[in-house]
Design a binder for these strands. Structure first.
Length: 203
DNA sequence: CCGTCGATCTCCT
DNA sequence: GGAGATCGACGGG
């Protein structure tokens, strides 16, 4: 399997990256344990011009500074004080576009993932949802800023899906974003059972 | 099956 | 002080 390279992440179209990430393999390897899952759901956050983005209007805080790095690093932040949400930084330096990975289909190291989550049986609660998948793969805010070209956390290539296999919708939990609430920036693999149950708002 | 609520960090969008 | 790119526990029907 081939790791996605810098040029994949430095693409200046965050929507294209979000769609291309569907079907690819998100891998972590820590303490000799490899776990992975196929990406089945993503959301794009278009930085300065996107009111749903933490980096709207080029806002810079300690938390979001990493989103301004060149594409190809992890942006992991704490949501509701508890959940670690994994995002892929895209585009060039100083353009804070990111893709939130919202759901995975578990592939490798399922026993390790279950153990991390205190679960016995495999079901969709393991990795359907951005907080859940981070816990299953052992992703925490300690990994924010980590290169996706390194050996802890990376994404392996897979063929791009045809447009007909991709479901498009509105993003989950962004009702505060005013005119950007209804942007069609959520993508998932049509009919895949590992997609999260989160509902985007309808216009 | 559904609605409610608590957890508890960051930024006030 | 309040809300948030969330989840799971709990109680009622």
């Amino acid at each position: 399997m081939v790791k996605l390279n810098a040029s994949f992440y430095e693409d200046n179209n965050v929507l294209r990256v979000a769609k291309r990430l569907l079907g690819k393999l998100l891998v972590t390897e820590m303490d000799g344990v490899r776990t992975s899952g196929r990406i089945v759901e993503t959301e794009a956050y278009a930085g300065a011009t996107d009111r749903a983005s933490h980096a709207w209007n080029n806002r810079r805080t300690a938390r979001t500074e990493v989103a301004y790095a060149p594409g190809g690093v992890a942006y992991v932040y704490l949501c509701y004080g508890i959940h670690h949400l994994f995002n892929v930084v895209t585009n060039l330096k100083d353009v804070p576009h990111v893709v939130l990975v919202r759901a995975l289909e578990p592939i490798e190291g399922i026993d390790h993932m279950l153990a991390r989550c205190g679960k016995i049986k495999l079901d969709t609660t393991l990795t359907a949802g951005p907080g859940s998948l981070s816990k299953a793969l052992g992703i925490t805010t300690a990994l924010t800023g980590e290169s996706l070209l390194g050996n802890k956390l990376w994404i392996e290539d897979a063929p791009n899906l045809p447009g007909s296999a991709i479901e498009t919708g509105t993003r989950v939990g962004v009702a505060y974003a005013m005119e950007d609430t209804y942007l069609p920036y959520r993508y998932s693999i049509k009919g895949n059972k590992w997609v999260s149950k989160g509902k985007g708002l309808k216009k």
